[in-house]
Amino acid sequence: MFSQSMFRFVLGVDNESELLLESLSWFMFLMGGCAFLVMRFVNMPYGRFASRKFGFPVNVKVAWFIQEFPSLAVPVYLVFFSTDIRPLQLSNQLLLGMFICHYIHRSLMFPFLIRGGKATPFIPFACAFIFCIYNGYLQARYLSKYAVYPSDWITDPRFLTGFTLWLFGLSVNLHSDHILRKLRKPGETGYKIPQGGMFEYVSCANFLGEIMEWFGFAIACWSLQSASFAGFGFLILSSRAAQHHRLAALLLMRRHRQRTPLRTCKRRGTVFDAERWLHPRLDWPHCVTAVKRPVSGQSGNKIFQRTSECR
């Protein structure tokens, strides 16, 4: 009892239910940090990086539908069927609508638009399913029962800024997903680098769009619960983006190896080998010492042999 009273005092909450939401929010920050550290050493086993070491494969469309659906079903249940919620103000309705809108697309539309795609290993599928239940409850419970906003919140600069950022991120996410679906014609296989839209500026525009969405949502909600979700999403999606960026760098290097000189390491003056990006622990500028060898039949061009001297 004393420990619970201390937690309520420190967190500034008045009851155990609200204390639970605050604790879940801080725990989400912790989970995101731990996952970020793990993903510095282990690639997220999704898509091209899927592996049977992480469980038996689940059909990609089925996996996406099932794992994302709780983030839609839990808020809908709490809003329409729970008996202990307060009457929702317009601001609460709009914020819940922003959350639900994303997951209507992510669970009911996106899975059935996927073209091909590798099966999802069971362990990341199960983790995503559990997280969506966790986060769906956290966001919807807070907004439907505990969040109290001023009557003019929808004209507050924080709400307007957050909503604008959320809407822009959503449009970037949807457009980027469309570009990715159009990369390969029916029957084509292999990895291709997307072009167009925000892909002209970043390697993973779809992840960037979703990060902007949830940061906009967090600003509009102005709460610990939404901030924890935005922070968690940033740590996970930025790690996945770095993973895809390393793959894109490798593909470009292999494609242009014969005609494009490799970069020089600014730290030690040695030659940077993009193949090293495949390993998540070894990022720029931790390059490898290189030995120049001429390419047969192409005067003036060089290829580079890796050694293990530069770590």
Rank of each mutant, 00 (worst) to 15 (best):
F304I: 07
V62D: 01
F125Y: 01
I133P: 09
V79C: 13
I133L: 15
V172C: 11
I236D: 11
W214A: 03
S5M: 14
V291Y: 07
D152N: 12
P150V: 15
E210A: 11
G196L: 11
T164P: 03
H286L: 10
L72M: 10
K145V: 15
E16Q: 11
R141H: 07
S25P: 02
G116Y: 09
Y146K: 02
G187M: 06
M28N: 10
R311N: 14
L282Q: 12
Y191D: 07
M212K: 01
L174F: 12
R255W: 07
G300D: 09
Y134G: 02
P70R: 06
D152C: 09
R259L: 07
R268W: 13
C34Q: 13
D283Y: 01
R281T: 11
L262H: 05
T264F: 09
W222A: 06
V10D: 05
I303W: 10
E22I: 03
M31R: 14
R246A: 15
I133E: 11
W64Y: 10
L237N: 10
P285G: 04
L237Y: 04
R48H: 11
Y134L: 03
C221I: 07
S299F: 15
I193H: 03
P194M: 01
N15L: 11
G12F: 05
L170T: 04
D283I: 08
G216D: 01
I193S: 09
F129H: 04
L247V: 14
T289R: 09
F29N: 00
R306Q: 13
R8N: 06
V38W: 00
Y149D: 10
L160E: 06
R240W: 10
S228Y: 03
F168P: 00
V202N: 00
S228K: 04
G196V: 03
S226H: 04
R52M: 11
L95W: 04
S144E: 08
F234K: 02
Y103N: 05
H178F: 14
E22M: 08
R293W: 00
E210H: 01
V79G: 07
A140E: 01
P280I: 04
L224K: 02
F199K: 12
D84R: 11
T189N: 12
Y77T: 00
W214Q: 05
F56G: 02
N173Q: 04
T307C: 08
Q89A: 14
F56T: 05
I211M: 02
L247S: 12
M253L: 13
S144F: 03
G216H: 02
E309D: 13
Q67A: 14
V62F: 15
V76P: 02
M28F: 09
G47T: 05
L235W: 06
G97W: 07
K292R: 14
S203K: 03
S51R: 10
N15Y: 10
L237S: 09
C265N: 00
E213L: 01
N301R: 13
A218H: 05
P45L: 04
W222D: 15
D152V: 12
G269R: 02
M1S: 13
C310Q: 00
Q225K: 07
F110C: 05
P261W: 08
M198V: 14
R263A: 15
Q67D: 11
L167G: 07
A230R: 03
S71D: 01
R184K: 13
W153P: 00
N135T: 12
R246G: 15
L278I: 13
E68K: 06
Y134C: 10
C204T: 12
A50L: 00
F36N: 09
T189P: 11
W26R: 12
I154A: 01
